[in-house]
Amino acid sequence: MIFKKEKFIMLLGFIPFVFFIINFLILPLIFIFINSFLVEGKGMSIENYKTAFTNPFYFQSIQNSIWISLMSSFFGILIACLGGYSISRLSPKLRSRFLMLSNMTSNFAGVPLAFAFMILLGSSGVLPILLHKIGFDLSKVFTLYSGTGLILVYIYFQIPLGILLMYPAFDTITEDCIHAATLLGASKIQFWTKIGIPLLYPSILGTFSILFANAMGAYATVYALTTGSYNVLPIRIGALVSGDMFLNPNMASALAVILGSILIGATLLNERLLKYKGGESHE
C-alpha cells in the first residue's frame, strides 16, 4: 500500500512535464502540420510544398541552410575531435579549466556573437582596417556578410559544443590501449584507422548530427549578422510569420515542416549508419 502511494506521488510529479510537452510541443507541431496544407482560397492542398521546391527563392533557402550546416558541422567536428583529444590528455586541473571555457563559449551565440564578428571582421572591423594599412584589401577575398562569412561564424559556435560532446568519448582511448597497439607493431596512423576512429565512430556521427541540427535551426546569429538579407530557412520562416510584408503563415508552416523533416531524416540516417557499422563490426 505504501509502495503504491509513493508511486502515485511520483506519477503526480510528471503531470507538469506532460502538460508542458503536450501544450508546447505536440499541439504546436500538429497545428503547424495542418496549417502547412492550408492555402488561402483553396482549402487543403499541397501547393505550399510545391512552391517550396519549385520557387527558386524558397528552394535557395533550403540549399543554403543545408550547405552552411554541412560545412560548419564538418569543420566543427574535425576541430572538436582534435580539441577533445588534446583536452583528454591534459592534467585534471587544466582539463577542468578548458572544459569551463568550452562551456562558456558554447553559450556565446546569437546577437552578441554576430556583434563580436562585426567588430573583428566587418566592413569597418579591426582586422580589415589593420590589413588595409599594410596594403591588403580583405574585402576582395572575404566578406563577413556572405555565405563564407556565415560558415566561419557557425564554425565558431559549433566548436565548443562539439568539444563538450566529443570529450567524454576519448575516455575509451586510454594510454594502455595506445601502448598495447604500439607493442604489437602498429604505427600511429594504423592505430587511429584500425582502433581509434572505429571506437569514436558512434560519438562522431552522433555529435555531427547534433551540430547539423544546431546549425539548421540557428536564427538570431544570421539575422543579426545579415539583417535577414541572407536566404536561409529560419530567416524565411521568420519573415513569413512576422515580417513587414507578404505574411504567409501557412507557407511558413510548410517550410517549418520541411526543416523538421530534414532534421528527422538526418537523425534516421545517423541511426542507420550506426546500425550498419555495428553489424559490420560484429561480422
Score class of each variant (00 low, 15 high):
Lys5Tyr: 14
Gly13Ser: 04
Ile15Asp: 00
Val18Trp: 08
Phe20His: 06
Phe24His: 02
Leu25Trp: 07
Pro28Glu: 03
Ile32Arg: 10
Phe33Gln: 04
Glu40Cys: 01
Ile46Val: 10
Tyr49Thr: 04
Ala52Thr: 09
Thr54Gln: 01
Tyr58Leu: 09
Ser65Lys: 03
Ile66Arg: 08
Trp67Gly: 01
Ile79His: 10
Ile79Gln: 07
Cys81Ser: 13
Gly84His: 11
Leu90Pro: 08
Leu99Thr: 15
Asn103Glu: 14
Thr105Gln: 15
Thr105Met: 15
Leu113Thr: 01
Phe117Cys: 07
Leu120Ile: 06
Leu121Phe: 14
Leu127Ile: 15
Pro128Ala: 04
Pro128Lys: 05
Leu131Tyr: 07
Phe136Glu: 00
Asp137Val: 00
Tyr145Pro: 00
Tyr145Leu: 09
Ser146Pro: 00
Tyr156Phe: 14
Leu164Gln: 13
Leu165Val: 01
Met166Asp: 06
Pro168Arg: 01
Thr172Lys: 14
Ile173Met: 01
Thr174Met: 02
Asp176Phe: 02
His179Val: 12
Leu183His: 08
Leu184Met: 10
Ala186Phe: 02
Ser187Ile: 05
Gln190Tyr: 07
Thr193Ala: 13
Gly196Met: 13
Gly196His: 10
Leu199Phe: 08
Ser203Glu: 07
Leu205Ser: 06
Leu205Trp: 03
Gly206His: 12
Gly206Phe: 04
Leu211Pro: 14
Ala213Asn: 11
Gly217His: 09
Ala220Cys: 03
Ala220Trp: 00
Ala224Phe: 08
Thr226Ser: 05
Thr227Lys: 08
Ser229Val: 01
Ser229His: 00
Val232Trp: 01
Gly243Leu: 02
Phe246Trp: 06
Leu247Tyr: 05
Leu247Met: 06
Ile258Asn: 00
Gly260Met: 13
Leu268Met: 11
Leu268Gly: 00
Leu274His: 00
Glu283Trp: 09
